[in-house]
Design a protein around this nucleic acid. Structure first.
Lengths: 229, 229
DNA sequence: TATTTTTAGTGTATGTATTACACTATGTCA
DNA sequence: TGACATAGTGTAATACATACACTAAAAATA
């Protein structure tokens, strides 16, 4: 090669699209930026990857630092490498998405330093950098994945009713589902364990509570079982 | 924060898992390393990302440089960020997978400088770095994606028979498919255009040639059509 | 030129899964 | 005790998936 190439020793960041179900709406958690660039704008929680840290670890650490969340479902989404996505210098971002049970989080959010807020995915503010693209991709991924993997349960509390579950799917997929057909199908998988409890929620008939049997799912999966819608 | 963190200004590479169909087998293209580390070992084609270049562009450039391939189907796969995946220093690799029509490539491969060779996915040599993990993930992704997106055609020449197509799916999925049911289903989509040509291939009945109607697929997709197996 | 070889090409019946659809049950509150 | 709100339940019609075996067309050879 006749001349020296300028290889990217790029600044590497992780960003997280954190989904939560709140008041029957699908929301994501955003942080208001304290510094330039995009000072005052809302952005995904995230930050620089440390030298002796895997990408997954960095994503978990940033989530914990900025939002107080730990032990959440977290999966790599896509890596964004447009040249000018950060106006300062070349920054490549490995995007993750996370699913959290809002019941867990409610308390912690308050104690955190950074200004974090939940926004409905349908009404997001303007976002910093290319974060709107990242959110859009995360939403598409979530909609795709929820159809063939039982990840929806990560958004619900450990005990939930079938109505809760159905509403979750309706919100994520943006469609209405038939109650009887939905119940028939999900109960047919044999992965929901009815508890000896009902949800008392005033002024109407109480509903049976269930939990998701994750162990059983893992076993079935090894034998080629496929969770489909 | 009490002390300075060491942020990763990581060396960034792209690596490509290039799939091709050759002699009825699914193969991937490997390069024999000329330099340490892993000198002499087989590895995925790839290299450093330049500063003023997107990740996709880097992946395409490396593919062109090392294998002579251009205009192939290319999609980001996953980003690998284990701390010691390169023994020299921290190197994060954005992995891609590519699907190529071997007919296109056959000629070009010979003219290339680097020693490149096709290996059946079922009989790969030992690979450098964590490239075996990358290949494994790429294969899983391909198997998943081929079921609900018509990407298999990227591995076939522009004109192909239904038997070609069926064998392709059988090889990728590792299952046998019923000929009549397979034909019924793929013809049912209305995306295969019969040509006024047959494939003459000695000693037996010639087969109808088809092409895949990519334009029609794009239109149908916008109207919510779903290609399924 | 008849026979063999090899792959191409075709239809139906059965079972399984999906859809559409409406009423009764059980609790709280006024 | 009646009104309200959500929970919970079954069936019939249709579409889809599966299993399955023979005939058709060309080339090669006897």
């Amino acid at each position: 090669m006749p001349h020296t190439y300028q290889y990217a020793r790029a600044a590497l960041t992780v960003d997280g699209v954190v989904f939560g179900l709140d008041a029957g709406e699908l929301k994501i958690l955003l942080i208001q930026r304290a510094l330039e660039p995009f000072k005052g704008k809302w952005a995904l929680p995230g930050g620089f990857v440390h030298v002796e840290e895997t990408l997954d670890a960095a994503a978990r650490r940033e989530l914990a630092e900025e939002t107080g969340l730990a032990d959440v479902f977290l999966e790599q989404l896509y890596t964004f490498g447009a040249v000018k996505r950060d106006p300062r210098e070349r920054v490549v971002s490995v995007a993750y998405y996370a699913l959290v049970k809002l019941s867990d989080h409610a308390a912690k959010a308050a104690t955190d330093a950074a200004k974090a807020e939940w926004f409905p995915v349908s009404r997001l503010p303007q976002l910093a950098f290319d974060h709107a693209d990242i959110v859009a991709l995360a939403l598409t991924r979530l909609q795709g994945k929820v159809r063939y993997q039982p990840i929806g349960f990560e958004l619900l509390p450990p005990k939930f009713t079938l109505s809760d579950l159905q509403h979750l799917y309706e919100v994520i997929l943006g469609t209405e589902l038939d109650k009887r057909n939905f119940r028939k199908k999900v109960l047919g998988f044999g992965l929901l364990v009815p508890l000896n409890e009902t949800q008392m929620s005033g002024r109407h008939r109480p509903a049976q509570l269930f939990r998701f049997d994750a162990d059983k799912y893992e076993k079935l999966k090894k034998r080629g079982f496929n969770f489909e819608l």
